[in-house]
Design a protein around this nucleic acid. Structure first.
Lengths: 232, 232
DNA sequence: TTAATTAGCGTACCTTGTACGTCAACATAG
DNA sequence: CTATGTTGACGTACAAGGTACGCTAATTAA
């Protein structure tokens, strides 16, 4: 047991943090929750939302905790992005950071709580200079989001429960940064048979009124088990 | 500066390790470099190759160092897989581990060095019980390898510089665990125009002798810049 | 000489993506 | 009260690419 103790004891110890790239979809724009730091160090600077990993929690636990603190939400879609560990990435100290990206339904989160934490939703082209390598993290997260959204139905995590096909399409247009053909998009997504068409109509954007749909997660998972792959 | 010092000082510190899932391709089989631990703790147990992250290096540096120590090679293809951080994942102490998967040309590595470190190449169905969550790491790495190989020409990292189309095909058959049609595979890969056909023939597997090819990385990168996407 | 094995080329078909035409429903302007 | 604009919704035609599969060539071993 002495051997084992010294084996671990001789190894160096590190500060480990999590940083969260929090995506939202509002006013047909893809947005990020950005924090302006209210206390030192780096007071006034802009950054991602983050925090240190405690001894009693995994990195995913830490990210969940941070996300909950700032949004009030549990059960947020979240995925590990990458570990950033350059020795000098944090100018204050040597910190290893695990980046997580998260998808939030903007209309469900606690706006007051977010403001209390000094955060705001910013569109991609509104994001100011950020501390450390946080800009790089966002770029990486965008690539990952595109990759993931291409073959997995995670876009629905950004939309309200009920949505129109136009909303869904404009979301993907934002994610991929290119226009999609209305008619082909509709054909493709409906052919998958994973949307439930509701009786209700949404009249806010159209004079004619567009049918609302709901993502049928159960049906998707059934199909996925049989080898079906979502692709958009 | 006091504020800043206390900000970092109050945060907990962690042991951070890297574990490497090292893939090789030998005798038409996909194999992994597995270590039998020669010293305590866990002497005799099987595990991945790993080590602690030092204060002066990034996690990628640490993985590169570990890979070099065991294989003698530099410039190994390597990619971050995932961070494993469950509080009790390591039964000896709380250790956060970053897993990297690597692709090695088996015939180029230093066999003696590998044996000195107590490692051996094992096919996927030959791998014994491993310590901690190393089995899970391997499963995740396999999925990632399949994903990555699907759209990126990384298979060549596992083959000798010169290879036959049959070798290439059998590699992908191993990665995907399914048989591929000879004729369609040939058609598809040659149509990409990223292989250089050599005059030499390889007669070891066939009586007729098969042409050797070389992956033209330059040409691939040219095409990739123009929007071409590798897919197999 | 023949059988067996792997290399290598070609064809036919079907699915899927893509471009694009068109009508329907409704609100608002004149 | 008609004309016009906007968004929703359905359909068609063509091209490209994947897939299934037939066939020949070269060589060695029996």
């Amino acid at each position: 047991m002495n051997l084992q103790q010294s084996f671990y004891a001789q190894a160096p110890r590190h500060l480990v943090a999590v940083d969260c790239i929090i995506f939202g979809f509002e006013d047909s724009r893809l947005k990020l929750l950005i924090m302006q730091r209210m206390v030192d160090p780096f007071q006034g600077s802009f950054s991602l939302v983050g925090g240190f990993v405690l001894e009693s929690e995994s990195t995913a636990d830490a990210a969940t905790r941070v996300l909950q603190q700032v949004s009030g939400l549990r059960n947020i879609f979240m995925d590990q992005l990458h570990c950033y560990s350059d020795v000098n990435r944090d100018s204050g100290s040597r910190v290893i950071s695990l980046a997580y990206y998260a998808l939030i339904r903007v209309e469900e989160h606690d706006r007051k709580l977010a403001i209390q934490h000094g955060t705001q939703w910013l569109a991609l082209d509104e994001i100011p200079e950020l501390i450390f390598d946080h800009r790089k993290m966002i770029e990486d997260a965008l690539f990952r989001l595109r990759d993931k959204a291409h073959f997995h139905p995670i876009g629905f995590e950004l939309l309200p429960e009920k949505f129109t096909l136009s909303q869904l399409r404009s979301l993907y247009e934002e994610i991929y940064q290119r226009v999609l053909d209305k008619r082909n998009f509709r054909k493709k997504i409906l052919a998958m048979n994973i949307l439930e068409k509701l009786e209700e109509k949404d009249k806010t954007t159209s004079k004619k009124g567009a049918h609302l749909y709901r993502f049928d997660k159960q049906k998707y998972e059934q199909l996925a088990q049989k080898g079906f792959v979502f692709e958009i």
